Computed example of a mutant assay.
Amino acid sequence: MLNGFTGADKAYIACRYTDLRRGIDGLASIVQQQFQLDPFTNTLFLFCGRRKDRIKGLYWKKDGFILLYKRLEEGVYQWPRSENDVRSLTPQQYRWLMKGLKIEQPKAYREVMGLSRVV
Rank of each mutant, 00 (worst) to 15 (best):
M1P: 06
L2W: 03
N3V: 08
G4A: 09
G4M: 10
F5K: 00
F5A: 02
F5L: 02
T6N: 09
T6G: 09
A8F: 01
D9E: 15
D9L: 12
K10G: 02
A11Y: 07
Y12I: 04
I13K: 02
C15K: 00
Y17T: 11
T18K: 00
L20P: 04
R21D: 00
D25P: 00
L27V: 06
S29G: 04
S29R: 09
I30E: 00
Q32N: 08
Q33A: 14
Q33H: 13
Q34N: 11
F35A: 14
F35Q: 07
F35D: 11
D38E: 09
D38R: 08
P39I: 04
T41N: 08
T41A: 09
N42P: 07
F45R: 02
F45L: 10
L46W: 00
L46Q: 00
L46I: 04
F47R: 12
C48Q: 04
G49F: 06
R54N: 10
R54M: 05
I55Q: 03
I55Y: 00
K56P: 03
K56G: 07
K56M: 02
K56L: 06
G57R: 04
G57T: 01
G57L: 09
L58C: 03
L58E: 03
Y59S: 00
W60K: 00
W60Y: 04
K61Y: 13
D63Y: 12
G64I: 03
G64R: 03
F65E: 03
F65C: 01
I66Q: 08
I66G: 04
I66Y: 11
Y69N: 13
K70W: 06
K70G: 05
K70N: 10
K70Q: 15
R71F: 01
L72H: 03
E73Q: 13
E74Y: 13
G75N: 11
G75M: 05
V76K: 15
Y77L: 02
Y77I: 07
Q78P: 02
Q78C: 06
W79R: 02
P80V: 02
R81G: 09
R81K: 13
S82A: 13
S82K: 09
D85E: 07
V86P: 02
V86E: 05
S88P: 13
S88W: 15
L89I: 01
Q93E: 11
Y94Q: 05
R95H: 12
R95P: 06
W96S: 01
M98E: 07
K99G: 12
K99I: 01
I103G: 00
I103D: 01
I103K: 08
E104G: 08
Q105A: 11
P106G: 14
P106N: 14
K107R: 15
K107F: 13
K107I: 10
A108I: 04
A108V: 03
Y109S: 12
Y109P: 05
R110T: 11
V112Y: 12
V112F: 13
M113S: 11
G114R: 13
L115D: 02
V118Y: 13
V119C: 10
